[in-house]
Design a protein around this nucleic acid. Structure first.
Lengths: 141, 141
DNA sequence: TCTAAACTTGACCATTTTAGTCAGGTATGT
DNA sequence: ACATACCTGACTAAAATGGTCAAGTTTAGA
C-alpha cells in the first residue's frame, strides 16, 4: 500500500490551486511558498498531474497552472492515481497464474486485501476537491 | 501509511495457527513450510505477537505457539498494530503544537487523512481471525 | 544425561522507495 | 532581451523493507 507525502502534496497543491485560479494561472512558486513544499518537488508532481489532464499549464512570464476541470469533477482517486499513489494493498507474488507465494491456492488473506482496497477506493471515489474546499484551513488552537 | 508484507504475513500465520492449534502447539517451522514464509522472519513477527499477548509460546521440543484468545476475539487491528503496521496515514510534521509544515494552520488535507484513517481502522476493527477462517483457502482456477 | 527440536534475541544487510536536490534546458509576456 | 515560469532528467541521502545470520536458551524425550 502506498500513501505517502507525494499524494498529500498533490492534494494540498490542488486545493491551493482551486482557491486561487479564478482569474490568472497560479505559479508553482506561489504554491510552494504558501504550502511549504519544495518547488522542485512540486514540478515533478505537476508534471504528472498535467500528463493526466488534471491541470493545464501556461508557460512564460505570468504563466502557471489552472485546473482543467471543475473542483467537484476532480475526485481524489484521480489525483492520487495521477501521481502514482496506487491504492494497492499488498500484492501477492505472481497472483495471476499461480496462487500466492507460489502455492496452488490463494493465500488466506487474499480476499481480505482486495476488500480493503475496494473500501479505500470507495472513500477516495466519493471525495472531490470541492469537498476539501469547504473546510478550508482551520486555525490550530 | 504502512501496510506491507509483514502485516500480511502476520495475518497469514495466525490464520494458519488458528487452524492447527486445536491440540498441540504449532511450530514456526510448520507455518513456515505451509505458508512459504521465511522462518527467520516469522520469528521476528511472532516475537512481536507474543509481546502483545496475541500468542503464547511453549519452548523446547514439541513446543510452538498457540493463540492466547479465541479467533473471534482477535481483531485484525490487534494483529496489525502488534507488528507495527500503524494504520497511520501521512503525518504532518509537528502537528501537535504548530500546524502542518510549520504553518500556523492545519493543512487543508489534515482532516482528510484523519477521516481515512478512521475509515480503515473501522474496517480492521470489524474483522476478526474467525472471519478469515471461513473462506479458507480457495483454489486458483 | 544427552541431544535435537524449537523458541529467543539481536545484529546485520541488500535492495527499494521516498523525498527530495541540482542542473540544465524551453517558452513567452512585457 | 530578459525575467519569469514551465519542463526534463539525472542524481542522491536517508529511511523502510524484507529479509539473513549468529549465537544463544529451554525443554521433551530417548
Amino acid at each position: 500500500m502506498k500513501l505517502t507525502s507525494k499524494g498529500r502534496y498533490a492534494v494540498m497543491a490542488l486545493v491551493d490551486l482551486a482557491r486561487f485560479d479564478t482569474i490568472n494561472p497560479v505559479s508553482l512558486r506561489d504554491i510552494s511558498l504558501r504550502q511549504g513544499i519544495s518547488l522542485d518537488y512540486l514540478e515533478q508532481i505537476f508534471s504528472k498531474l498535467k500528463r493526466n489532464q488534471i491541470v493545464k499549464s501556461t508557460r512564460g512570464n505570468q504563466g502557471g497552472y489552472v485546473l482543467s476541470k471543475k473542483p467537484n469533477e476532480i475526485k481524489l482517486t484521480n489525483i492520487l492515481s495521477a501521481v502514482d499513489e496506487k491504492v494497492k494493498t499488498v500484492q501477492c507474488k505472481k497472483e495471476s497464474k499461480k496462487g500466492c507465494n507460489g502455492k496452488a491456492t490463494k493465500c488466506v488473506t487474499h480476499n481480505l486485501w482486495d476488500e480493503l482496497e475496494t473500501h479505500i477506493n470507495t472513500f477516495f471515489e466519493k471525495k472531490s476537491l470541492q469537498d476539501l474546499l469547504k473546510n478550508k484551513s482551520e486555525r490550530v488552537n
